[in-house]
Design a protein around this nucleic acid. Sequence first.
DNA 1: AACAAGAACGAACGGTCGTGCGCTATCGGA
DNA 2: TCCGATAGCGCACGACCGTTCGTTCTTGTT
Lengths: 182, 182
Amino acid sequence: MRSDGVRSREAILRAAAGLATVEGITGLSLGRLAESVGMSKSGLFAHFGSKEELQLATIDTAQRIFADAVVTPAVAGGSGIDRLRGLADRFLAHVEDAVFPGGCFFASVAAEVDTRPGPVRDRAVEVVDGWTALLRQAVLDAQEEGTVDRAEDPDQLAFEVDAYLLLGNAQFVASGDPEALA
Amino acid sequence: MRSDGVRSREAILRAAAGLATVEGITGLSLGRLAESVGMSKSGLFAHFGSKEELQLATIDTAQRIFADAVVTPAVAGGSGIDRLRGLADRFLAHVEDAVFPGGCFFASVAAEVDTRPGPVRDRAVEVVDGWTALLRQAVLDAQEEGTVDRAEDPDQLAFEVDAYLLLGNAQFVASGDPEALA
DNA sequence: AACAAGAACGAACGGTCGTGCGCTATCGGA
DNA sequence: TCCGATAGCGCACGACCGTTCGTTCTTGTT
């Protein structure tokens, strides 16, 4: 039994997650991906039975990268308001630090596939829903702690925070960094 | 001199603007576009010297459609606050009415091309900048009229309005219509 | 040392892409 | 009524796409 397969599979998927934010997840071709990772198209392809499976695996990998870079460290701070701040700060930081070269992976991919039905789209909106649920729960907890006005509609507040983050992401990738916003 | 050329060119571009919000402006192929408009690929291609010119012309056409559907009627109401409200309402309405089948044309296209340098990207961000400038000017005028607090940062406020509209657009196209927001 | 499993490769396939070329209708102006 | 301009078509091209297949190297097990 050999064990270097999983290692190169991981390398492929990390490269794919980065490239997908630039070329798009459908625009990303096996040829370019293979070239960027330094192996043959067919050798790469053998790791996944189809392009769709590659796309799904890429989304999963991007989710793990995103979780490591923003969710996990932000959720460490226990209180609701700290988590909300942490999520927002970490999100902006991961955009500015170019964790993905083309900005937030899910903003890119969701915008690309949200009109094209299929497993890829379903997976993408699933992840996005998880993110907004995270935001919402942080707001809820903050309200329970009294650090956020209980009169606020939690869905509305989470929506607003999400909207700021997303537009901040979009404007940053479209220009420079004039995003001292929060 | 014949005159039916400009008519079919117009028909092509309207179809292209619609399709681009679904397939993406790079994903949209000459073959599919020709099929959807009922003519041959080469006959269609003859109207534009290259795909890039088709894309640029499509952006221009989308801008005109967008202007007709949201900007022009909203700007009719003279006062700043009315224009701001009008722009927001009209924007949401044009998304809900599916003026473009895949939601706001420029939200789709900007997200797609903002990482790929070139004339298409430049044209797209140019239009988007025009839109935010419109928002900003409406805020400014509203402040001058006293209908909006002068202490507010106009850039910040325009940013917030824009963020709500864009996320509303994204959520609508990704699901149903739970967007009673403003 | 021999063997089997697995990783990666090269070449080729059918299909679609954007792009040219040359022909045939069709129409407006003389 | 004829003519020249032009809209549109059919066809073909080279490039690249995702995918398949048989082969070659590498490696762990016996």
